[in-house]
Design a protein around this nucleic acid. Structure first.
Lengths: 120, 120
DNA sequence: TAGGTTTTACTAATTATTTAATAGTATATT
DNA sequence: AATATACTATTAAATAATTAGTAAAACCTA
Protein backbone atom coordinates (compact mmCIF):
# COMPACT_ATOMS: atom_id res chain seq x y z
CA UNK A 1 0.00 0.00 0.00
CA UNK A 2 1.23 3.48 -0.90
CA UNK A 3 1.11 6.35 1.56
CA UNK A 4 -1.28 9.20 0.87
CA UNK A 5 -0.16 12.78 0.60
CA UNK A 6 -1.72 15.28 2.95
CA UNK A 7 -4.25 16.60 0.46
CA UNK A 8 -5.18 13.12 -0.71
CA UNK A 9 -5.66 11.95 2.83
CA UNK A 10 -7.97 14.82 3.62
CA UNK A 11 -10.25 13.78 0.82
CA UNK A 12 -10.10 10.10 1.72
CA UNK A 13 -11.20 11.00 5.24
CA UNK A 14 -14.31 12.57 3.78
CA UNK A 15 -14.95 9.64 1.47
CA UNK A 16 -14.57 7.19 4.32
CA UNK A 17 -17.03 9.24 6.25
CA UNK A 18 -19.61 9.52 3.49
CA UNK A 19 -19.09 5.99 2.14
CA UNK A 20 -20.10 7.20 -1.29
CA UNK A 21 -20.13 10.66 -2.69
CA UNK A 22 -20.18 12.91 -5.69
CA UNK A 23 -17.49 15.50 -6.11
CA UNK A 24 -19.84 18.16 -4.87
CA UNK A 25 -20.58 16.22 -1.69
CA UNK A 26 -16.89 16.07 -0.89
CA UNK A 27 -16.42 19.72 -1.67
CA UNK A 28 -19.30 20.57 0.62
CA UNK A 29 -17.57 18.93 3.56
CA UNK A 30 -14.27 20.68 3.05
CA UNK A 31 -13.09 23.44 5.32
CA UNK A 32 -13.10 27.02 4.22
CA UNK A 33 -11.46 28.34 2.21
CA UNK A 34 -12.85 25.68 -0.07
CA UNK A 35 -10.74 24.68 -3.06
CA UNK A 36 -12.11 24.76 -6.60
CA UNK A 37 -14.48 22.01 -7.67
CA UNK A 38 -11.89 20.79 -10.14
CA UNK A 39 -9.21 20.54 -7.50
CA UNK A 40 -11.31 18.06 -5.61
CA UNK A 41 -12.21 16.27 -8.80
CA UNK A 42 -8.55 15.94 -9.73
CA UNK A 43 -7.60 14.51 -6.35
CA UNK A 44 -10.37 11.98 -6.47
CA UNK A 45 -9.18 10.87 -9.86
CA UNK A 46 -5.62 10.58 -8.49
CA UNK A 47 -7.00 8.46 -5.65
CA UNK A 48 -8.67 6.32 -8.25
CA UNK A 49 -5.42 5.71 -10.14
CA UNK A 50 -3.71 4.96 -6.83
CA UNK A 51 -6.31 2.29 -6.20
CA UNK A 52 -7.98 3.85 -3.17
CA UNK A 53 -11.25 4.72 -4.83
CA UNK A 54 -13.60 3.50 -7.55
CA UNK A 55 -16.66 5.01 -9.12
CA UNK A 56 -19.96 4.00 -10.59
CA UNK A 57 -21.45 6.09 -13.36
CA UNK A 58 -24.79 7.49 -12.29
CA UNK A 59 -26.43 9.20 -15.22
CA UNK A 60 -23.91 11.63 -16.56
CA UNK A 61 -21.87 11.80 -13.42
CA UNK A 62 -19.72 9.66 -11.14
CA UNK A 63 -20.40 8.44 -7.69
CA UNK A 64 -17.15 7.63 -5.90
CA UNK A 65 -16.55 5.19 -3.09
CA UNK A 66 -13.48 3.97 -1.16
CA UNK A 67 -12.13 0.52 -1.91
CA UNK A 68 -9.32 0.77 0.62
CA UNK A 69 -11.08 0.86 3.96
CA UNK A 70 -10.23 3.29 6.69
CA UNK A 71 -9.24 0.31 8.83
CA UNK A 72 -6.76 -0.87 6.24
CA UNK A 73 -5.18 2.52 6.08
CA UNK A 74 -5.25 2.93 9.84
CA UNK A 75 -3.43 -0.32 10.16
CA UNK A 76 -0.86 0.74 7.61
CA UNK A 77 -0.33 4.00 9.50
CA UNK A 78 0.09 2.42 12.90
CA UNK A 79 2.56 -0.03 11.51
CA UNK A 80 4.58 2.73 9.95
CA UNK A 81 4.70 4.60 13.24
CA UNK A 82 5.55 1.50 15.24
CA UNK A 83 8.36 0.45 12.98
CA UNK A 84 9.82 3.93 12.68
CA UNK A 85 9.60 4.97 16.32
CA UNK A 86 8.98 2.05 18.61
CA UNK A 87 11.04 -0.79 17.23
CA UNK A 88 7.83 -2.35 15.96
CA UNK A 89 6.54 -2.92 19.47
CA UNK A 90 3.08 -1.84 20.50
CA UNK A 91 4.02 -2.34 24.12
CA UNK A 92 6.79 0.22 23.75
CA UNK A 93 4.39 2.66 22.25
CA UNK A 94 1.87 2.12 25.04
CA UNK A 95 4.59 2.63 27.65
CA UNK A 96 5.75 5.77 25.96
CA UNK A 97 2.24 7.12 25.90
CA UNK A 98 1.56 6.18 29.49
CA UNK A 99 4.71 7.91 30.71
CA UNK A 100 4.07 10.93 28.65
CA UNK A 101 0.54 11.31 29.92
CA UNK A 102 1.64 10.51 33.44
CA UNK A 103 -0.89 7.73 33.63
CA UNK A 104 -0.94 5.98 36.95
CA UNK A 105 -1.51 2.26 37.37
CA UNK A 106 -5.25 2.70 37.83
CA UNK A 107 -5.61 4.60 34.64
CA UNK A 108 -3.66 1.98 32.74
CA UNK A 109 -5.96 -0.67 34.22
CA UNK A 110 -8.98 1.26 33.12
CA UNK A 111 -7.76 1.58 29.56
CA UNK A 112 -6.92 -2.10 29.35
CA UNK A 113 -10.28 -3.12 30.76
CA UNK A 114 -11.86 -1.07 28.05
CA UNK A 115 -9.73 -2.80 25.46
CA UNK A 116 -10.54 -6.24 26.84
CA UNK A 117 -14.24 -5.51 26.78
CA UNK A 118 -13.94 -4.28 23.26
CA UNK A 119 -12.00 -7.26 22.00
CA UNK A 120 -14.59 -9.76 23.20
CA UNK B 1 6.25 21.63 15.62
CA UNK B 2 6.41 21.10 11.89
CA UNK B 3 6.22 17.64 10.34
CA UNK B 4 9.30 16.23 8.68
CA UNK B 5 9.34 15.07 5.09
CA UNK B 6 10.39 11.52 4.41
CA UNK B 7 13.95 12.38 3.47
CA UNK B 8 14.35 14.72 6.40
CA UNK B 9 13.01 12.15 8.79
CA UNK B 10 15.46 9.55 7.57
CA UNK B 11 18.34 11.82 8.43
CA UNK B 12 16.88 12.80 11.79
CA UNK B 13 16.65 9.12 12.68
CA UNK B 14 20.37 8.80 12.11
CA UNK B 15 21.15 11.96 14.08
CA UNK B 16 19.01 10.78 16.97
CA UNK B 17 20.91 7.56 16.89
CA UNK B 18 24.36 9.08 16.75
CA UNK B 19 23.57 12.03 19.07
CA UNK B 20 26.18 14.10 17.27
CA UNK B 21 27.67 13.64 13.86
CA UNK B 22 29.50 15.13 10.95
CA UNK B 23 27.94 14.97 7.53
CA UNK B 24 30.21 12.08 6.63
CA UNK B 25 29.05 10.11 9.67
CA UNK B 26 25.45 10.46 8.59
CA UNK B 27 26.28 9.54 5.04
CA UNK B 28 28.08 6.46 6.27
CA UNK B 29 24.95 5.19 7.97
CA UNK B 30 22.70 5.68 5.00
CA UNK B 31 21.42 2.78 2.96
CA UNK B 32 22.76 2.02 -0.47
CA UNK B 33 22.49 3.53 -2.92
CA UNK B 34 23.97 6.36 -0.90
CA UNK B 35 23.09 9.89 -1.94
CA UNK B 36 25.74 12.49 -2.68
CA UNK B 37 27.59 14.04 0.24
CA UNK B 38 26.02 17.37 -0.65
CA UNK B 39 22.53 15.97 -0.59
CA UNK B 40 22.98 14.98 3.02
CA UNK B 41 24.63 18.28 3.80
CA UNK B 42 21.71 20.18 2.28
CA UNK B 43 19.14 18.24 4.25
CA UNK B 44 20.98 18.78 7.48
CA UNK B 45 21.05 22.49 6.79
CA UNK B 46 17.31 22.38 6.06
CA UNK B 47 16.79 20.63 9.38
CA UNK B 48 18.79 23.39 11.00
CA UNK B 49 16.55 26.09 9.53
CA UNK B 50 13.51 24.10 10.62
CA UNK B 51 14.87 24.13 14.14
CA UNK B 52 15.47 20.41 14.53
CA UNK B 53 19.25 20.54 14.56
CA UNK B 54 22.11 22.80 15.63
CA UNK B 55 25.83 22.60 15.09
CA UNK B 56 29.07 23.48 16.78
CA UNK B 57 32.05 24.45 14.67
CA UNK B 58 34.87 21.98 15.22
CA UNK B 59 37.95 23.23 13.45
CA UNK B 60 36.95 23.80 9.87
CA UNK B 61 33.87 21.66 10.00
CA UNK B 62 30.49 21.36 11.70
CA UNK B 63 29.37 18.82 14.18
CA UNK B 64 25.59 18.53 14.13
CA UNK B 65 23.29 17.45 16.93
CA UNK B 66 19.49 17.20 17.36
CA UNK B 67 17.75 19.80 19.46
CA UNK B 68 14.30 18.30 18.99
CA UNK B 69 14.49 14.98 20.78
CA UNK B 70 13.23 11.76 19.34
CA UNK B 71 10.72 11.63 22.17
CA UNK B 72 9.33 15.01 21.27
CA UNK B 73 8.88 13.98 17.70
CA UNK B 74 7.48 10.60 18.69
CA UNK B 75 4.93 12.34 20.77
CA UNK B 76 4.01 14.66 17.95
CA UNK B 77 3.61 11.69 15.61
CA UNK B 78 1.42 9.67 17.94
CA UNK B 79 -0.79 12.65 18.51
CA UNK B 80 -1.18 13.20 14.82
CA UNK B 81 -2.16 9.58 14.27
CA UNK B 82 -4.54 9.59 17.22
CA UNK B 83 -6.32 12.71 16.16
CA UNK B 84 -6.52 11.71 12.50
CA UNK B 85 -7.58 8.11 12.93
CA UNK B 86 -8.76 7.39 16.45
CA UNK B 87 -10.72 10.43 17.50
CA UNK B 88 -7.82 11.38 19.74
CA UNK B 89 -8.33 8.36 21.97
CA UNK B 90 -5.44 6.09 22.83
CA UNK B 91 -7.89 3.50 24.09
CA UNK B 92 -9.47 3.33 20.68
CA UNK B 93 -6.12 2.83 19.08
CA UNK B 94 -5.19 0.10 21.52
CA UNK B 95 -8.50 -1.66 20.87
CA UNK B 96 -8.01 -1.41 17.18
CA UNK B 97 -4.56 -2.88 17.44
CA UNK B 98 -5.67 -5.67 19.76
CA UNK B 99 -8.46 -6.69 17.43
CA UNK B 100 -6.28 -6.54 14.44
CA UNK B 101 -3.60 -8.68 16.00
CA UNK B 102 -6.20 -11.01 17.45
CA UNK B 103 -4.80 -10.52 20.90
CA UNK B 104 -6.54 -12.56 23.56
CA UNK B 105 -7.15 -11.36 27.09
CA UNK B 106 -3.96 -12.96 28.36
CA UNK B 107 -1.86 -11.17 25.85
CA UNK B 108 -3.48 -7.88 26.72
CA UNK B 109 -2.74 -8.56 30.38
CA UNK B 110 0.85 -9.23 29.55
CA UNK B 111 1.20 -5.96 27.69
CA UNK B 112 -0.45 -4.09 30.53
CA UNK B 113 1.92 -5.64 33.09
CA UNK B 114 4.82 -4.61 30.95
CA UNK B 115 3.54 -1.07 30.71
CA UNK B 116 2.87 -0.86 34.46
CA UNK B 117 6.37 -2.08 35.24
CA UNK B 118 7.79 0.43 32.83
CA UNK B 119 5.84 3.37 34.16
CA UNK B 120 7.04 2.89 37.73
C1' DT C 1 54.24 26.87 -2.35
C1' DA C 2 51.60 24.15 -5.72
C1' DG C 3 48.45 20.59 -5.96
C1' DG C 4 45.26 17.48 -3.74
C1' DT C 5 41.55 16.75 -0.05
C1' DT C 6 37.69 17.81 2.82
C1' DT C 7 34.18 20.42 3.83
C1' DT C 8 30.64 24.18 3.77
C1' DA C 9 27.78 27.51 1.08
C1' DC C 10 25.29 28.54 -2.75
C1' DT C 11 22.66 27.45 -6.61
C1' DA C 12 20.50 24.79 -10.19
C1' DA C 13 17.93 20.89 -11.86
C1' DT C 14 14.58 17.39 -11.31
C1' DT C 15 10.58 15.32 -9.61
C1' DA C 16 6.36 15.23 -6.77
C1' DT C 17 2.45 17.57 -5.05
C1' DT C 18 -1.08 20.82 -5.12
C1' DT C 19 -4.13 23.87 -7.38
C1' DA C 20 -7.13 25.33 -10.84
C1' DA C 21 -8.10 27.09 -15.65
C1' DT C 22 -9.89 25.62 -19.91
C1' DA C 23 -12.41 22.80 -22.99
C1' DG C 24 -15.78 19.62 -23.95
C1' DT C 25 -20.23 17.05 -23.15
C1' DA C 26 -24.71 16.30 -21.67
C1' DT C 27 -28.88 17.96 -19.55
C1' DA C 28 -32.29 21.32 -18.27
C1' DT C 29 -34.67 25.78 -19.16
C1' DT C 30 -36.71 29.53 -21.55
C1' DA D 1 -33.00 26.54 -30.87
C1' DA D 2 -30.25 29.35 -27.70
C1' DT D 3 -28.66 29.81 -23.11
C1' DA D 4 -27.59 28.37 -18.65
C1' DT D 5 -26.12 24.56 -15.61
C1' DA D 6 -23.58 20.67 -13.95
C1' DC D 7 -20.41 17.82 -14.59
C1' DT D 8 -15.86 15.21 -16.46
C1' DA D 9 -11.34 15.25 -18.80
C1' DT D 10 -7.26 17.34 -20.14
C1' DT D 11 -3.74 20.34 -19.39
C1' DA D 12 -1.04 23.96 -17.34
C1' DA D 13 0.82 26.55 -13.65
C1' DA D 14 2.50 27.14 -9.00
C1' DT D 15 4.70 25.38 -5.06
C1' DA D 16 7.28 22.02 -2.29
C1' DA D 17 10.60 18.34 -1.85
C1' DT D 18 14.58 16.01 -3.37
C1' DT D 19 19.02 15.61 -5.41
C1' DA D 20 23.39 17.12 -6.51
C1' DG D 21 26.76 20.16 -9.19
C1' DT D 22 29.91 24.04 -8.65
C1' DA D 23 32.53 27.41 -6.12
C1' DA D 24 35.00 28.80 -2.23
C1' DA D 25 37.50 28.19 2.08
C1' DA D 26 40.57 25.68 4.97
C1' DC D 27 43.75 22.33 5.50
C1' DC D 28 47.33 18.88 4.32
C1' DT D 29 51.41 17.09 1.99
C1' DA D 30 55.31 16.58 -1.11
Amino acid sequence: MKALTKAEEQIMQILWDLKEAYVKDVLERMDDPKPAYNTVSTFIRILETKGFVKHRPIGKSHQYYPIVTKDEYRSFSIRRLLSGYFGGSFTKMASFFAKEENLDVNEIERIMEEVKKDVK
